[in-house]
């Protein structure tokens, strides 16, 4: 479970960064979902059985550290993980553009799930703003993925050199 340890350390760091420093760079509502980028990265770099478990665990972390009801992001990140694996099988998305497009789609899926749940519990109202907000946030996350993917690859490279993969 060396992959699991790596994921946990990165997940805790991402959570700490996401809940503190990210607000300095941009408004909270538009900040990129770095955790989602980590899930997509996991779908491209880790074995399916381990990766999906980590995506589920990551979703639980996000549920705890956001206003989401427990379980929502656990499901969403599992689905996004499967989506990442599926798209990679079909189109070989592991290029800069492919990864950015996948992250953009995944953020839209995640936003749709959040807003859909808000409609189910009857608390949200829809307007043109909601769509533009979700789109802007998705673009921000896709742009952030261009930076985050190489950093994760580098960290994974150093980690596997030091520890080994299995």
């Amino acid at each position: 479970m060396r992959e699991g340890f790596f994921f946990l350390v990165v997940a805790f760091l991402v959570l700490a960064l996401q809940t503190t420093w990210m607000g300095f760079l941009m408004p909270v509502a538009y900040k990129p979902d770095v955790f989602l980028i980590l899930v997509i990265w996991t779908s491209l770099r880790m074995p399916f059985m381990i990766g999906i478990g980590l995506a589920f665990a990551g979703g639980i972390f996000v549920d705890i550290f956001s206003g989401a009801p427990a379980g929502l992001f656990a499901i969403v990140y599992c689905l996004i993980f499967v989506m990442g694996c599926y798209l990679d099988g079909l189109f070989r998305i592991d290029t800069r553009l492919g990864r950015a497009m996948t992250v953009l789609m995944a953020t839209l899926v995640s936003g749709a799930a959040v807003l859909l749940w808000s409609v189910v519990v009857g608390s949200a109202e829809y307007s043109g703003y909601v769509l533009s907000w979700a789109l802007a946030k998705s673009v921000m996350t896709a742009m952030a993925s261009l930076l985050v993917f190489p950093v994760l690859d580098r960290a994974w490279g150093v980690y596997t050199t030091l520890i080994g993969t299995r």
Binding site: Q18, T19, M22, G23, V28, A29, F35, S66, G67, A68
Partner: peptide, 10 residues
């Protein structure tokens, strides 16, 4: 700390 994903206001 603030909300982890920014979809919620917490």
């Amino acid at each position: 700390a603030e909300d982890a994903v920014g979809w919620y206001r917490t």
